[in-house]
Simulated assay, not measured.
Amino acid sequence: MHGPAAPGWLLVALCAATGVYCLLRMRSTVEEQRRAAGGEALMGFGMAVMAVPPAVVAPPRWAGTAYLVVFGAAAAWALFAARTHAHHLHHLVGAFAMVYMAAAMAASPGHHGHGGHGGVPLLTGAFLVYFAGYALWSGVRLVPVSAATGARGTRSAGWGDRPELAHACRLSMAIGMLAMLLTL
């Protein structure tokens, strides 16, 4: 699941920073921000841990199983939360993608990859298409929010409540997920 060390550490930094910002969003006075921030923080930190280059810190044999349990629980929570808020469907897809990568990690602890396959497995391809689309969609949503916020001059909201920063975090996590899936 991991490539060279330098891009791996950049991915770790990006995902950890996103996780920290999402934790800060959990303190928001805007209920919608708080609702999504917890799941996004878990995904950010989980992606950061899974992206640590194994040449630097070899994951223990039980790591894949622990990821399966944590992200399986996150998927169950997202499924429950999606009943009332559609955004949690994205969290559900993200949690399933993390479960999928954790299963690959648990199946081959010393070697992260599909090995021997002539192409990209169907599920990996489906996740790649989904996250590429989500990254494009998030990027498109980011531009109008930034322009509208600047035009209205509504900068009085705390930086944890700014929707363009939440969109930027979602965009960076989608790009991070793409990077992780590409190295799977």
Rank of each mutant, 00 (worst) to 15 (best):
T84M: 06
A73M: 10
A58W: 02
M177G: 09
V12R: 08
T18K: 11
G110K: 09
A135V: 11
Y130D: 01
V69S: 00
A166W: 00
P60I: 14
L142Q: 09
A103T: 09
A102L: 09
V49D: 03
L42K: 07
V20S: 08
P163T: 15
A76Q: 06
G153N: 15
G3R: 13
L142P: 05
G125C: 07
G118N: 13
H88M: 00
G115M: 02
G113T: 04
V57K: 02
M180R: 01
G19L: 05
A148T: 15
L14A: 15
A66G: 03
G116D: 10
P7V: 09
P59Y: 09
E31D: 15
A37K: 03
G94A: 09
A97S: 12
G116H: 13
P54Q: 05
V52N: 03
L123A: 04
T149G: 10
Y21E: 11
R25E: 09
A151R: 11
A147P: 05
E40N: 12
P163S: 09
A13W: 03
L182D: 05
P109K: 10
F127M: 11
S138W: 02
R141L: 10
G3H: 09
A6R: 01
A135Q: 04
H114R: 14
H87N: 11
V93E: 13
L14P: 13
V120F: 08
A151I: 08
L142D: 08
A76G: 07
A63V: 14
R170D: 07
V120S: 01
L92G: 04
L178M: 11
L23K: 08
S108G: 13
G8S: 11
V129P: 00
A147G: 02
A103P: 01
M43W: 01
A73H: 07
L165A: 04
P109N: 10
